[in-house]
Every structure is written in structure tokens, then in C-alpha cells.
Amino acid sequence: MSAKVVPFKPEQPERAPSLDPMLAQTASAMNAVNTVILDRMQSEIPLIPSLAGHLIAGGGKRLRPMLTLAGADLIGYQGTRHHKLAAAVEFIHTATLLHDDVVDGSDLRRGKAAANIIFGNPATVLVGDFLFSRAFELMVEDGSLKVLKILSGASAIIAEGEVDQLTAQRQIETSEERYLSIIGAKTAALFAAASRIAAVVAERGDAEERALDDYGRNLGIAFQLVDDAIDYSSSAAEMGKTRGDDFREGKMTLPVILAYARGDEDERRFWKAAIGGHRTTPEDLAHAIRLIERHDAVAATRERARHFAERAVDALAIFPESKARMAMAEAARFAVSRGY
């Protein structure tokens, strides 16, 4: 009896996490949100839609409003209130980006010239204010004081986080604890609020609200950790912004905090001079990247991000298995694995 030959099948590599399932899950609702965004960014003053459109149409992931839509899908909400609120979330986010670019003096945003470079700082700040106002109009139209409290509270926390980051700039002794507090405010607060309001409009209980808030908050921290790692590990083309912006601006992000803590005396002297603004040439940036690589600071930052992403996934455990839940879990893992 002859032996049966079983053809060899090479093992398929595991698929990398992707945002595609969440994009597919929210595509229809996102079309409705985009309609609201395009309608509400209009003004009789031509500069306003021109400047706002420069950034809004710039190819962002729309991740924050997507969280509102995905959360609503997760809990089976059948209404449409979340469309306007997701647009409000995107307006808040866009306004903060416009203000950030002015504060940071950024040249690039999403691979294009930053709005402040094209339109100037005064116009960029004022259009950011316009978008904040539009966001609050949308919240008031929704009519829920609870939603208004959540999103207005998040807006205040974001501003506090940005100010805290500004005061920590060029402060070499900034601790990891303070850094996490800063990114928890400036980034994670809006992720948390965007997720939580889905449970509010669906009139779900405190447990669902807390779960979605925890999901968004942990996802936001993971997302910002990876953003800060990318600044020292990806090319400008991948990032859509100039490589080493954080270094030149003297921002104490986790890769620097870890490299400084793990470095010897000579390395610490370099970091003190660099973060203090005295060593910011391309050669200094290259040396900083070598030190960060020497101490595995990017890998350690991504590992911390992975921890927060898994906490985000764990927060979804109270909801039944569904395509929406799987898409949201994969989005959290994508936040860690991405290179841009």
C-alpha cells in the first residue's frame, strides 16, 4: 500500500492588525458625518472654509469620530444623533491641530504644508476658534446636557494638557508619570469622550459608559505613545511631518525620557544640551536617534503602548461578541503596530 503524499503548504504569516474592519464597519455612517462636516465648515468669509478644508480634506484617519460611530454600532444604537456629535468631535480635534501647528511652528501636517505656513498664524488660530464654535453649536443642537458636559469637559482637559506640555518643554527632568499625565489629557481625553458619548445617546447604563470611556482613554494613550515613538523611528514621508520635530522643539516624550534615564554621564550631558535647545542640528538629531536605538527606547515605548492597547481591548469584554467589537479590538492593536 503506497503512502499518500500530502502537499506542503507553507504557513501563512499572521495578518497585521488593520484599521480596515473599523473603516468598513462605520463607512455608511461616516458618509453622513462627512456631509455634516462639509456643511458646517462653510462660511460667508471665504478664508474660513478654505483654511478648514485644507486640513479636514488632508487625509486624516478620522479615528476620533469613528470611535463614536463604532461605539454606537457596538451597542446597537439605531438613531442618527451620533452623526452630528461625531462631526463635533472631528471639529474639536481639527481646531486643536490648527492651534498646535501655530504653537509648534510646524511646517508639515499629514504630508502637506501646515495651514499656518500657507495662511499665517492669525488666520489659523481664528479658524481653529471658528471650528470650536461649530462643535459647540452641534452639541447644543443635540440637546443633551450630559453630552455637552462630556465634550466640553474634554475640550478643557485637552487645553490643560497642551499647556502642561508647554511648561514641560525643555525640562529634562520630566518624569514618565508626568508625561503620561500630559498625553492622557492632550490626546486620550478626546478619545475617551468620543467613545463614551455613544453610550449616552443610546441611553445605556453607567457600566457601558465606563467601558467605552476606558476603551477610548487607553486607546488614546497607546496612540500617542506610538506617535512619539514614530518621531524617532520613521521617515518624514511615512509620518507626513518633518522627522525630529519633537527633538527640535525640546519635547520630553517617552523615548527621550527612557534614553536619558538609561544613559551614561556623557549621554545625559548631550540630552541636557539638546533638550535645552543648544544641540538641534541634523547631526545632533542623528546622534539622538542612535542613543535611543542603543537603549531600545522606541521598542520600550511601543511595549508600553501595547499594554494600554490591550487594556482598551479588555474594556470591551462586557459587550457581546460582534463584528463591531472585533473591529474596535483590531483598531486598538493597529494603533500599536502602525508605522505612520
Rank of each mutant, 00 (worst) to 15 (best):
A3W: 15
A3S: 08
V6H: 13
F8I: 11
P10I: 10
Q12A: 13
P13I: 07
R15C: 03
A16M: 03
P17C: 14
L19M: 11
D20Q: 14
M22K: 06
L23V: 09
A24H: 04
Q25W: 01
T26K: 05
S28L: 07
N34Q: 12
N34E: 13
D39L: 03
R40H: 10
M41I: 03
S43I: 05
E44V: 09
E44A: 10
P49I: 07
A52N: 06
L55N: 03
A57R: 07
G60T: 00
K61F: 01
K61A: 06
L67V: 07
T68Y: 11
G76W: 01
G76K: 02
G76A: 10
Q78I: 08
T80A: 05
H82Y: 12
H82S: 10
K84V: 02
A88G: 11
A88Q: 13
V89E: 02
A95V: 04
L97I: 02
H99P: 09
D101G: 09
D107Q: 12
A114E: 02
A114C: 06
N116E: 05
I117M: 14
I118N: 14
I118V: 15
F119A: 15
V125N: 14
V125I: 10
V127A: 01
R134V: 06
E137F: 14
V140M: 15
E141Q: 15
D142L: 03
S144F: 13
V147K: 13
L148N: 02
K149F: 03
I150K: 04
S152C: 08
I157T: 06
V163D: 04
R170M: 08
Q171L: 09
E173R: 15
I183F: 15
I183T: 12
G184W: 15
G184P: 13
T187W: 00
T187P: 08
T187K: 00
A188G: 10
A192D: 10
A193N: 12
S195Y: 01
A198S: 11
A199S: 15
A199D: 06
E203M: 11
G205E: 03
E208G: 00
E209T: 00
R210E: 13
L219N: 08
G220I: 02
Q224M: 02
L225T: 11
D228A: 12
S233M: 11
S235T: 15
M239Y: 04
T242L: 05
R248V: 00
L254Q: 02
A259P: 13
A261C: 08
E265F: 11
D266L: 05
R269G: 11
K272G: 00
G276L: 05
E283V: 08
D284E: 03
H287C: 06
H287Q: 07
I292H: 02
I292T: 07
D296T: 03
A299G: 04
R302K: 06
A312H: 00
A317Q: 09
I318T: 09
A324R: 04
R325F: 06
A327K: 06
A335L: 13
S337M: 10
G339Q: 04
G339N: 15
